[in-house]
Every structure is written in C-alpha cells, then in structure tokens.
C-alpha cells in the first residue's frame, strides 16, 4: 500500500447559498501525479484554496504528512510542505524573475530585520544561498536566461514556469498546479508535461488541475472528478474516463 501524503475528509465550503465543496474527500499518495478535473465552476480552485489555507473550510478534516492542517493559515501550510500556483497567474509583476523565486525562499530562511540592518555574516551567507538556490530553480524550469526580466514582461509560458519555480523554492512535498497548461500551445504543453514528470521523479508529489483531458490521461496516476462541489469519481484514468457519471457531468455541462 502506498504511503498517504495528503488526507482530506468530509470537506464542506459554502459561499452564502452556494455549496462550493460538498463532503469532498481526497487521499493523495506520496510520489504520484494526482489529477483533479471537472466542469467549470465545479469547485476545483476552491479545493486548492482550502488546501492552501486561503479559504477556511466550514467542516471536515485535513492532515498532511502526519500534521493536522485543518484551518491552518497559509504560511503554516506552506511551511508544512504544500506549494501552489494560481489559475490566473499571480506573480509579483514588478519584481524580476529571480526576485520572485527568492521570495519563495522566504519560508526556508530566517534572517530578520536586525540581521539585515547589521549585515551579519549569517545574514549575508543566507542571502547568497537564497540567490544561488533561486538561480538553480530558474535553470531547473528552464528560464534562467530571463532571470533579470520583470515578471510582467515575460511570455505567458515563461510566467507559468516562473510560478512553478517560485512554488518549488518553498521546498514543497506537494506541488499543487491550477491549470498550468491553460493558454499554452501543444509544444509548450509537451514541455510542461516533461517538467511535471521531472518534478515528480525528483520526489515531489504533484496535484494537478487541468481541462486538457488528453494531457491528464497521459500524465496522471490517478484522477478525481468534481461536479457541483461533489466528488463523483476517482481512480486510474482509464476507469474514470469510462465512468458514466463523469461522461454525464461533462455532457450535461456541455449541453446546458
């Protein structure tokens, strides 16, 4: 039996009258690429926001890597080892690519105001290490050539990669990607797929939201399907794809 990294049970999240997540459970194993799909508005992003502490769930339980993270604030979640990207890219636009990744190192470094003001040896060494690590990550995702560009000026594909590098800088055990391939051309998507496999092979578990079914089928070890806030199916891609409830959900969404 594979080791469970993330265990979510009975999560509910309501926005006024809207039941955005309705009794959702997810178990993600260490080392897998886990896909989350569903029609528009199904609650996928809401699930991410709950997972990363941006939204507080109304009910449920949430443990990660043995720690209870239910209703933990975002910085505790990140410290615990979950990092994410955003569906509508949220980089620090006026910062350079390098600086963006350096911000990601914040949680894994500790120089305080006093260290900065006094420029202590420890603070200087740490700062150098932060920068070195940031370069390494930019190379890892393949955009070190634009390290000194402002994030705003990067191409769309580069921005997506930069967001991944920034998330990896927090040294996550679970990397959660919200539609990373949206708006990419087939070549870029292919490269992105390779990158995700590389990340996984380097020991990081990946949780992925995507609409591109072909990509998901080829990439994910397991997939869960959300519809109207409920999990309607879960399993290996071939089985999920043939599940009548899933077909119904997608067709229903397409026809309404």
């Amino acid at each position: 039996m594979a080791e469970v990294l993330l265990k979510i049970e009975g999560i509910h999240k309501r926005f006024g009258g809207l039941h955005a997540l309705n009794n959702v459970a997810l178990h993600i194993n260490k080392g897998e690429i886990y896909g989350l799909i569903g029609p528009n508005g199904a609650g996928k992003t809401t699930m991410f926001n709950v997972l990363t502490g941006l939204y507080t769930p109304d009910e449920g339980s949430f443990t990660f890597d043995g720690k209870d993270l239910f209703r933990a604030p975002p910085h505790i979640v990140v410290a615990g080892g979950i990092a994410r990207t955003f569906q509508n890219i949220r980089l620090f636009h006026e910062m350079t690519a390098l600086e963006n990744v350096m911000v990601g190192r914040h949680i894994r470094s500790k120089a305080g105001a006093l260290g900065a003001i006094l420029r202590t040896k420890a603070a200087r060494e740490e700062e150098a290490a932060i920068e070195a690590k940031a370069w390494e990550l930019l190379k890892y995702v393949g955009i070190d050539d634009v390290a000194h560009e402002r994030a705003r000026n990067l191409s769309y594909g580069h921005q997506r990669r930069l967001e991944i590098a920034r998330a990896l800088a927090t040294e996550p055990k679970l990397l959660a990607l919200d539609e990373p391939a949206a708006g990419m051309n087939p070549k870029e998507t292919e490269d992105l797929k390779a990158l995700m496999e590389k990340v996984r092979n380097d020991g990081v578990t990946v949780l992925l939201i995507e609409h591109d079914v072909k990509l998901m089928m080829g990439l994910c070890d397991r997939i869960a399907v959300l519809d109207y806030g409920k999990k309607i199916a879960e399993g290996v891609p071939e089985v999920v794809r043939k599940d009548p409830k899933v077909i119904e959900a997608y067709l229903g969404a397409a026809h309404s």
């Binding site: 990363t52 502490g53 941006l54 604030p73 975002p74 910085h75 990140v78 410290a79 990092a83 994410r84 955003f86 949220r90 980089l91 620090f92 636009h93 006026e94 910062m95 600086e99 350096m102 911000v103 990601g104 190192r105 914040h106 949680i107 470094s109 120089a111 305080g112 105001a113 260290g115 900065a116 603070a123 740490e126 700062e127 932060i130 920034r166 998330a167 927090t170």
Partner: peptide, 23 residues
Amino acid sequence: SRIGRAWVAMREDQIAASAMGLN
C-alpha cells in the same frame, strides 16, 4: 534584504505572498 523583498511581495500581491509562505 529578505525582509525588504517580503514587503515588496506583500505590497504587490498579498494573496500570492501569503501563498508563498509569508506571514
């Protein structure tokens, strides 16, 4: 410094900053 960078990040996008682990 690390602190100064955190301030800029927070100023630019508080939600992204907290999702990057900034307290």
